[in-house]
Simulated assay, not measured.
Amino acid sequence: MSQDAAAGQTGVVPLLTVVVPAYDAAAYLHRALDPLVAFAAAHLGAIEVVVVDDGSNDGTGALADAYAVQAPEVVRVIHQRNAGHGGAINAGVAAATGRYLKVLDADDWLDSLVLVEVLAELARREAQGGIDLLVTDFTHVRDGRGDRVVRFDSVFPARRLIGWEQTARFARRQYLMMHAVIFRTALLRRSGLSLPEHTFYVDSLYVLTALAHTRRIVYLPVSLYRYVIGRAGQSVEADTMLRRVDQQLRVTRLALAMLPDPRDVVSGAVPVRLYGAMMHYVEALCVVTSATLSRGGTRAHLAQRQAFWAEVQAESPWLHARLRRTLFGASSNLPGRAGSRVTTLAYHAARRVVGFS
């Protein structure tokens, strides 16, 4: 449905669509939806919530439907056959009617007080012609170890409309993960976003696909997203990541293919700082993927790791050399058993840096 069609039905185009992909999330979906429904009751027409029940086997679909009955002007539910996280995001983006879009995983939540400030900023910028990307800080909620806020104040000037040329370099712990970004819905569609189905770890592809098209940026130094780490069964658990390493490899290869041609950077068609941000992200994916294979340690795992780096070198010698020059890149590709031990240490460091632990 187009935004104009939605306005014709309701009279109001929401400023923000929150897409909630949900699979077997009945135990914690309330944590994501309760704050949004309460917020929407006090700010009618500001947001819509699209819950995508991705073929759940528990009570997720029924619970989501109950929220839609409770707040029909706010919550819509899409029931679909299981297509994985990427398929659920695709469905949510296709159904969104808001000017801007935020993806919220079903086991996380948004800070309602901060959301007030975020929406006020989006409304102000929309009145001035709109933006492509709103960046906010986010918080790792780590069971038993205290929360940790990822801030971007050293990268982006705060509360200003800027382009990539006005940004600084990202530090090791600073990655524009899905939790940090709100994209213009029209930009997401214009980017051709189509995430692979039945594949984990597609959040990075969501970000990179849209990021390549961003030029008008605003950063708010507030922590909107609460990202829960440590829940049993999460896809980012170390053992789970090892079992799904083939999916990691697939996503990392797709991410590598998304990097702009360096010639477009030289010509000015792609901003240098945008290219740097994308490279920074892809480097982390390469490190985590390579180090996960090293942690597996079997002959098959190590052969996959060697083949991965050989593939990178064959397709882009320049990129391979750049990755090998970095501390994490070099340590994730050391040969032999001694190298494997060093890579295991790099693996744990990389997980902390990227935010998987």
Rank of each mutant, 00 (worst) to 15 (best):
P21R: 03
P21T: 06
Y23E: 03
Y23P: 01
R31Y: 04
F39E: 05
A41G: 15
A41R: 15
V50T: 05
V50Y: 00
V52E: 08
A62S: 13
A66D: 13
A68F: 06
Q70G: 00
Q70H: 08
A71P: 00
A71T: 03
A71N: 07
V74Y: 03
H79G: 05
A83Q: 12
N90I: 09
A91E: 13
A95E: 15
T97H: 15
T97P: 00
D107R: 03
D111S: 14
D111Y: 07
V114P: 10
L119E: 06
E121I: 05
R124W: 04
R124C: 01
R125E: 14
G129K: 01
D137T: 04
D137K: 04
F138P: 04
R148L: 11
V149Q: 14
D153H: 14
D153P: 00
P157F: 01
P157M: 02
A158V: 07
G163R: 08
G163M: 04
E165L: 09
Q166V: 05
V181A: 09
A186D: 15
S191W: 09
S191G: 10
L193Y: 08
L193H: 09
L193P: 07
L205Q: 07
L205S: 07
L208R: 04
L208H: 04
T214D: 00
I217L: 15
V218S: 02
S223W: 04
Y227Q: 07
Y227W: 12
V228C: 01
R231H: 10
S235C: 11
V236Y: 14
T240S: 14
L242V: 07
R243Q: 14
R244T: 04
R250W: 01
V251F: 11
M258H: 03
P262Y: 13
R263G: 07
R263F: 09
S267N: 10
V272E: 15
R273W: 11
R273I: 05
L274P: 07
V288A: 07
A291R: 08
A291W: 01
T298K: 13
R299Y: 04
A300H: 13
L302F: 05
R305A: 13
E315K: 14
E315F: 05
E315A: 14
A321M: 09
R324Q: 14
G329H: 00
A330D: 06
S331H: 05
T343V: 03
L345C: 07
V354K: 10
